[in-house]
Design a binder for these strands. Structure first.
Length: 182
DNA sequence: GGAGCGATGTCCT
DNA sequence: GGACATCGCTCCG
C-alpha cells in the first residue's frame, strides 16, 4: 500500500535552493531528480511543484536543440549548468529548460508541467516566462527571478514515456512524470 | 473524447 | 522555404 510522500512527519523541512552540483549530471538523471521540486518566482509569489519533465541530450539526440551544434539561440545549453534556457516556439509560446552537464557540454531538461499548469507553453504563461526576461537566468542564485527549491518532497513513483511533440527519435524514453494523485 | 488543423515568429539548411 | 520540444478550437462520432 503506497503511503503519502509528504508529510513524512509533522516536522517542517527547510526549503533550500538546489545547488549548481545538482545539475552537473546527464539530463535523464537531472530530469528525474527535478520531479517534485518547486519552481519559484520569488518576487511575484508564484510557485508550483514540478510534475512533468523531459530530458534532451546534447549528443546522439537528434530531437535536442543542441543536436546541430552551438548557435546564438541555444548557447545557454552549452554553458554552465543550472541556467534557464527559454525559447520561442510556434509563433506564440515559450518553453522553459534548465541546462545540465558541466560547462561546455550541452544538455537540458524541458519543464512540461507543474501543478496547476500542464504543458510547457501554459507553464511559461502561468509564470510570465519569456526569452527576453528569463533566458540565461541562474536558477541557483538567491538573487534570481527564477529559482528551483527543494522542500523535502520525495515522489513515490516516476512514470517514464517517450517525449511529446517531436518528430525524431520518437521512441526514446525520456519523459518523466508523477502519477496523478488520488 | 479524439483527430485534425490553423495561428504565428524564429531559426537553420 | 520548411520545420518547429504547442495550444485551443473546430468537427465528428
Amino acid at each position: 500500500m503506497p503511503r503519502k510522500s509528504w508529510p513524512p512527519s509533522k516536522l517542517p523541512m527547510p526549503r533550500t535552493i538546489l545547488p549548481r552540483e545538482f545539475y552537473v549530471e546527464t539530463p535523464d538523471l537531472v530530469a528525474q531528480k527535478l520531479l517534485g521540486k518547486l519552481l519559484v518566482r520569488p518576487k511575484e509569489g508564484k510557485e508550483a511543484r514540478i510534475i512533468e519533465v523531459e530530458a534532451y541530450f546534447g549528443q546522439n539526440d537528434p530531437a535536442s536543440h543542441s543536436a546541430a551544434g552551438k548557435t546564438a539561440r541555444n548557447a545557454v545549453l552549452f554553458g554552465p549548468p543550472g541556467h534557464a534556457y527559454v525559447y520561442f516556439i510556434y509563433g506564440m509560446y515559450y518553453c522553459l529548460n534548465v541546462s545540465c552537464e558541466p560547462d561546455g557540454q550541452p544538455g537540458g531538461v524541458l519543464f512540461r508541467g507543474v501543478e496547476g499548469a500542464s504543458g510547457p507553453g501554459r507553464l511559461c504563461k502561468a509564470f510570465g516566462i519569456t526569452r527576453e526576461r528569463d533566458n540565461d537566468v541562474d536558477f541557483t542564485s538567491r538573487k534570481s527571478s527564477l529559482q528551483i527549491l527543494d522542500d523535502g518532497f520525495v515522489p513515490d513513483d516516476i512514470v517514464v514515456t517517450p517525449r511529446i511533440g517531436i518528430s525524431k527519435d520518437k521512441d526514446r524514453l525520456a519523459r518523466y512524470l508523477l502519477p496523478h494523485r488520488k
